[in-house]
Amino acid sequence: MKNEIKMRLKNRLKDDGLHETGIKGVRLFKVSESIQCAPAVYEPTVIAILSGSKEAILDGQKHIYDNEKYMCCTMSLPVEAGTPNASPEDPLLGVSITLDSKMMTELALEMENISGAIKKTKASELPKGLSFASWDNAFSDALWRLLQLEDNSVDSAMLGEGRLRELYYAVLKGEAGESVRRSFGVGNEIARSIEYLSHRLDQSVTIDELASKVGMSRAVFHRKFKQATSLSPIQFMKSMRLNNAAMNIATGMNVNQAAMSVGYVSSSQFSREFKRLYGQSPKQWISSQGHLYQSY
């Protein structure tokens, strides 16, 4: 089934970039040029690679994934992402599926309510927000059935939600399922705090405020947050703000506007922290990225 999906993408994708399928939250992509890792923000998404490989760096740890494992991101995360091995002879081909929080929560809670459906996790064991899972038959079949809908807009409208639910269920049952269930089902406090923060990057949000929102002490919140994201809450907030600003600069926003868009009142402070994180000033960084900047 994986080969059929690969051939479908090869025939469908003639140009580089993201391509809509007509199915909500499902996009295809092709990259034929080597792109070094650059600041990005992964939203809750499943990425399935059919050809080539992608890289994602979270807190200094490099993750490479290809057609052997799909990537599952269950919460907004500041990463560096790229496709350094892509070439015209061996382009990156893949599928991006946004995880709908309402549907995922319903499915996760249903699974948790079914006795014996899942292995219970100890409270101290909090899976990370970025995980990888081997392709299994259930995932391949569900992805193939989902992509077949893009040929017919009526089929997409009538069956899209059901086929997405089928794919989500395959993910929940797969190797990344535990991480996904903990992010969308019972015990999803860290994911909820990240969602709260992600909508307030231009505001002053304190660690105490985030901990209070999910009913935890500051110490417990700090420990569980780092377990889930590999970053402390303060590191996470700074990385999210700077990565979002970098993405805004890459799309043409000037440095001052980008700084203000993520809550910085001093452009000089923004430039200092940007250089500390990325090793270059904002202007130097965007010059080095050129036209190869990749935001997905």
Rank of each mutant, 00 (worst) to 15 (best):
120 K>G: 11
122 K>E: 14
267 S>N: 14
84 P>Q: 13
237 M>D: 11
246 A>Y: 05
73 C>Q: 13
239 S>L: 04
147 L>S: 07
7 M>I: 09
76 S>C: 10
147 L>N: 12
120 K>P: 10
163 R>T: 11
92 L>D: 09
133 A>G: 13
284 Q>P: 00
171 V>P: 02
81 A>E: 08
203 Q>F: 11
95 V>C: 12
269 Q>N: 05
7 M>R: 15
293 Y>D: 03
4 E>T: 13
144 W>P: 00
39 P>V: 02
236 F>M: 07
29 F>E: 11
113 N>W: 07
74 T>F: 10
129 G>D: 00
126 L>C: 05
95 V>P: 02
20 E>R: 14
53 S>V: 06
161 E>V: 02
13 L>P: 03
164 L>K: 11
190 I>C: 01
159 L>Y: 05
131 S>R: 04
214 V>F: 12
160 G>M: 04
83 T>D: 03
232 S>R: 03
175 E>I: 08
66 D>S: 15
252 G>I: 03
230 S>H: 10
260 M>P: 00
69 K>G: 01
233 P>G: 06
226 K>E: 08
151 D>A: 08
208 D>E: 12
194 I>F: 02
78 P>W: 12
200 R>Q: 15
88 P>R: 00
243 N>L: 00
146 L>N: 05
132 F>L: 11
240 M>V: 05
36 Q>D: 12
240 M>W: 03
291 H>M: 06
79 V>A: 05
217 S>L: 11
116 G>W: 05
144 W>T: 12
269 Q>P: 00
205 V>K: 02
59 D>M: 09
221 F>D: 11
239 S>F: 08
223 R>D: 14
101 S>C: 04
128 K>A: 10
99 L>W: 04
7 M>W: 15
67 N>Q: 13
212 S>E: 12
18 L>R: 08
34 S>L: 05
104 M>P: 01
152 N>I: 01
268 S>A: 13
160 G>K: 08
162 G>C: 11
170 A>G: 09
187 G>H: 00
167 L>D: 07
252 G>T: 01
177 G>Y: 07
215 G>F: 05
219 A>N: 08
